[in-house]
Design a protein around this nucleic acid. Structure first.
Lengths: 133, 133
DNA sequence: ATTGACTCTATAGTAACTATAGAGTGTAGG
DNA sequence: CCTACACTCTATAGTTACTATAGAGTCAAT
């Protein structure tokens, strides 16, 4: 199949596929006489693997490492487990940060309940340094 | 004061201040004979305002709009309130997304409780398309 | 006179794409 | 055979909000 069909089947955009190839996440496929990329079904599988990882928020660097690990069967898979654990930790702390942000924004928002004028706006007042000194 | 002192007092880096100037968030200050930027205390206030907004996760574009609104006193401040409401919405949905991600990662992680080999790894298996078809 | 801390501009890099320009390929219809 | 159209190619620039670097200049103190 050509890149357009691979894009549809994988759910990645055509540019993203070419980008992954440039970044070394997928290997360069065969080409037609007219220089078009031709993919086989293992290529679709590999791309789908990457897509699954991306959906879980893994970075391309992490995915690259997973791909390298996949290519060394027999070895223990601790690193895979460790990577997921680490990623869970990152997501957890991001959630905590965002929760704090959310609460702060809520408080800020309540400083200006009704529509006032710019000068009276409780939000702008709160954000301005003079009011907090 | 020169840019280094402004950086220390505001908590922004020197490069960030120059970047904000280039982006039009703060106005270009006066210069010394030696072409060094010189700031006054209103400049520090403006920068602190930007810092406060950034801490709340507002984008530079949003902050730009807030600054423009600040310069039109007397007008109603609905847009300010609306912007904060919108931002709260964005943060909320990001939290929900991350929560889902976190749960998905937890499930994935449990597919491979102990250390096995790469071939047996429940995580890699789960991420590979063949197992899900 | 020179050292050291500071500043200047301009440029490139970060993550993971997306968008565009300008050219070429392939095929279906008339 | 010609042409219209969909698709593909490469190369380049843009996105966000900075950070990092190079190479040059400024300024105060020793």
């Amino acid at each position: 199949m050509k890149i357009g069909e691979l894009a549809k089947r994988s759910g990645c955009s055509v540019q993203t596929i070419r980008y992954y190839e440039k970044e070394g996440l997928i290997s360069a496929p065969a080409r037609t006489g007219g220089n078009f990329r031709v993919y086989d079904s293992p290529a679709l599988d590999k791309l789908t693997f990457i897509k699954n990882c991306r959906t879980l928020g893994l970075t391309l660097d992490e995915i690259k490492q997973l791909i390298m690990l996949q290519d060394s069967p027999g070895r223990p898979c601790e690193k895979v487990n460790g990577m997921i654990d680490e990623h869970i930790g990152i997501v957890k702390s991001r959630i905590i940060d965002l929760q704090k942000l959310h609460d702060d924004l809520k408080v800020l928002r309540q400083k200006c309940g009704q529509a006032r004028t710019i000068e009276q706006c409780g939000i702008l007042d709160e954000l301005s340094p003079k009011s907090s000194i």
